[in-house]
Computed example of a mutant assay.
Amino acid sequence: MSFFPTTQYPTHLVECNAGKCIRENNTIKPDLRKGVIYMDQSDDQLMHFYWKERKSAEPEEDLIIFPDEAEMIRVKECTTGRVYLLKFKSSDQKLFFWMQNKDDEKDEECITKINRLINDPQGAIDEGRSSSRMDLSNDSQDLMQILGESGQDIGMSQENLMQFLQAAGGFGGNSAPTASTRAGGDDTIENSMDVDENDEPREQKRLSGTQVDSLKEILANTTVAEDTTATKVVTLSDDVASVDALNALLQNDALRQALFPNVPNVESTARHSHDEVSHLIQSEHFQLSLKKIDKALEDGSLDSILSSLGLDASADINIFLKAIEEQAKSGQQQAQSTHEESMEH
């Protein structure tokens, strides 16, 4: 069990994975790009409906919707996919979207929220805020019970605990610092920092052991369609498929077992050559692992993992593996430093 709550709070009023549909005469065809539809209220209190590619920072569609001006309904005539129509009452404008999550269990919940935000925006917003406060209160009470009834066992009030959790990113804070205990016995919170090319400090977020175990379980339970397994080839970018990057990942046992369970163990002193890395990436078992990662990213199964790494839910497989590689290399550097210090003593 993870010590800290893993509840993920939304960044938008409503958000769900969906692609656009292309209208060609009387035919509707899917735009195959991975997308997301979401709604937010601007500073001028106008409600906006957005669609964007998940890997894009900017929306491709930005529509202002006034109260009771539109509605989103299921297109029951479409039997080959879950297609929804955003239909405007004040014009002939019609936009079609197809749901991209692997199952439909959250489709109706998302559409209900969208229609509520259109018809009664302020009521829906107030309701969402109330729900968030309730969830936050329940989570804090659960953790307080774990730590000690009313916090007395650890000398921490509920207010102190909430400040601590918010600083630690457990309830929507800006960062997720690493908790560490020093020799003096004082519990401290410190950020793991790195420096980018412009010598500007940036936060380097890491997965805990529990989160790596969760990543392993998610990918183990991810299935890839047989036709996809046979035909699709996942291509990695040059920086992710480099000798240094792959060796760093494969030399970290925990990360290797989570991401590429069928790849043999690699000694910390051993390195794959360039030809060996190229052959490995094209191998059937390695490609299957890549397809599982790609599928889990697409259906949102890894959203909590992406959040822990400081990545947006639109991150693709290359961005995700690059972040994991950075964690593996950081672990190598720490292990090397510890080894050198022990040799000095």
Rank of each mutant, 00 (worst) to 15 (best):
E58T: 09
D107K: 08
R74G: 03
V83M: 12
T112Q: 14
D104H: 13
F97C: 06
D103A: 07
I37W: 08
A70E: 02
K52C: 11
F49G: 01
Q41W: 01
R74P: 03
N17T: 01
R74T: 08
S91I: 08
I125H: 01
D92G: 11
S91W: 05
I37A: 13
T112V: 13
C78T: 04
D68R: 06
D43M: 09
K34E: 12
K106Q: 14
L85Q: 12
D104L: 13
E61F: 05
C110A: 15
A57T: 09
D44V: 11
V83R: 01
F88K: 06
R23I: 15
Q122G: 01
R23M: 13
G81Y: 04
K102T: 04
K102E: 08
Q122W: 13
D31I: 04
A124T: 03
D68F: 00
V36G: 02
E105K: 12
N119V: 11
S42W: 00
A57F: 11
E108R: 09
E71K: 07
W98H: 10
L85A: 09
D103R: 09
L63C: 07
L63A: 06
I111N: 02
E71V: 00
G123F: 00
E53C: 07
K106H: 15
F97Q: 03
T112W: 12
E105M: 07
T80W: 09
P59A: 07
M72Q: 09
I73S: 13
K102H: 10
I73T: 14
S91Q: 06
D62C: 05
M39Y: 03
K34R: 14
E71R: 04
G123T: 11
I37R: 07
E61A: 04
T80Q: 09
W51F: 13
Y50R: 03
K87I: 00
V36S: 09
K52N: 07
E77C: 12
C21V: 09
P121T: 15
N101H: 11
I22C: 06
L85W: 08
L95I: 15
G19Q: 05
S90P: 10
D104M: 13
E24M: 13
V75W: 08
K52Y: 05
T80I: 00
V83G: 02
R33Y: 06
R116Q: 15
E109D: 14
A124K: 03
K113Y: 01
D62I: 01
K113Q: 08
Y50N: 09
D107T: 12
N17Q: 02
M39I: 11
A18P: 01
R74M: 05
K20T: 07
Q122C: 08
F88G: 06
I22D: 11
I28V: 10
K76G: 08
F97D: 02
F96E: 01
Y84M: 10
R82E: 05
E108P: 01
Q45R: 14
K52W: 03
K55A: 07
C16L: 07
G35V: 01
T112S: 14
D120G: 03
E60G: 09
E69P: 01
H48A: 00
Y38E: 02
T112E: 10
E108W: 03
D68Y: 00
P67F: 02
I73M: 12
D126Q: 12
L32T: 04
W98Q: 03
S56Y: 06
F66P: 00
K102A: 08
G19I: 06
